[in-house]
């Protein structure tokens, strides 16, 4: 029994080549889910193995890596994945969005505008946007082939009939370059507009489901909607308690047993950056009452 020796960024070169070939196809066919022979990673399926494999396949020694989960660099899974790459690739890591060349994320798009020198890698649990309407891969694959997306519109319309609104708050389906309907991963729909015409390349990795897909830079991405029910991003109607931001996505934090709550930026780097620039807490009187 000998201790294993791992390659740069953990994956062996053959695996990286296989993933790289899939990434190239994904870029050439925006929004199409390319099957790839996802490997067993030393972390559980569903915990970012797809994102980790994509990051490992693109990462080089010159890269600066940022890892976020729920917008934060300090959530346990983000810490764990960052540590994995520090150990296996020895790359420089950062929490500053602007400094990073590769950003791996779960459930959020950073607030700061991304640049052409950056790649955003999303962790994806269920890559198939039609999966909850049709559980069979054989069927959904046919629907994508024929651009047969009526079922999705029916579902969204049923929501409207029942609730008066499209009842999807996250993982809100998009259409990429007027062709493929795509799952943007479980980001809040607040983040959907950031996917469109983004200067950075966006890659999506689903390890357990063995799919990779991409949105090339400057690609039009539209959220599905109806003329009489246009897509609307949602954010809590409040400002961040720490930096007073009124444009960022907010986390609600429960502060006591009486149900009092407050709001803080979900993107911790954005919040810290603003505070460093002198933006401070808002006056207590502006707080939203507990039963909102």
């Amino acid at each position: 029994m000998t201790a294993p020796v791992y390659n740069f960024a953990y994956l062996d070169e053959q695996t990286k080549r296989m993933i790289r070939r899939a990434i190239l196809k994904a870029i050439a066919i925006p929004g199409y889910q390319v099957p790839f022979a996802s490997r067993e990673m030393p972390m559980p399926y569903g915990w970012g193995t797809g994102g980790v494999q994509v990051t490992a396949a693109i990462l080089g020694p010159q890269d600066v890596l940022k890892v976020i989960d729920q917008g934060s660099d300090d959530t346990t899974n983000a810490v764990s994945i960052r540590k994995f790459f520090t150990r296996t690739a020895g790359v420089r890591t950062t929490t500053a969005t602007l400094e990073a060349t590769v950003i791996q994320t779960r459930h959020r798009v950073p607030e700061a505008a991304l640049s052409a020198d950056q790649v955003l890698v999303y962790q994806v649990p269920i890559p198939e946007p039609l999966r909850f309407l049709e559980p069979r891969e054989t069927e959904t694959r046919r629907m994508h082939a024929l651009s047969e997306y009526g079922l999705m519109h029916v579902k969204l319309y049923e929501d409207i009939a029942r609730h008066g609104h499209i009842a999807t708050a996250y993982a809100y389906p998009v259409q990429v370059a007027s062709r493929y309907v795509m799952d943007p991963s479980p980001i809040p729909k607040f983040d959907n507009p950031k996917l469109s015409n983004c200067p950075a390349l966006q890659l999506f990795g689903a390890g357990r489901e063995k799919r990779i897909y991409a949105i090339p830079p400057y690609t039009r991405v539209t959220s599905l909607d109806f003329d009489d029910h246009p897509f609307e991003p949602y954010r809590h109607d409040a400002s961040c308690e720490l930096c007073a931001a009124t444009d960022s996505y907010l986390d609600e934090v429960i502060t006591d047993d009486q149900g009092n709550r407050m709001f803080v930026c979900s993107d911790t780097d954005y919040c810290e950056h603003r505070r460093a620039l002198g933006h401070g807490p808002i006056a207590a009187t502006q707080k939203e009452p507990a039963d909102g």
């Binding site: 390659n7 990286k16 990434i23 190239l24 870029i27 050439a28 080089g60 390349l201 830079p217």
Partner: peptide, 21 residues
């Protein structure tokens, strides 16, 4: 020795950028 791994990565990354743009 990561030499070959680094060279492969650099070539791939250049192509990835070209295909993206």
């Amino acid at each position: 020795a990561f030499g070959m791994a680094f060279a492969s990565q650099a070539a791939f990354r250049a192509l990835m950028e070209c295909l993206s743009r």
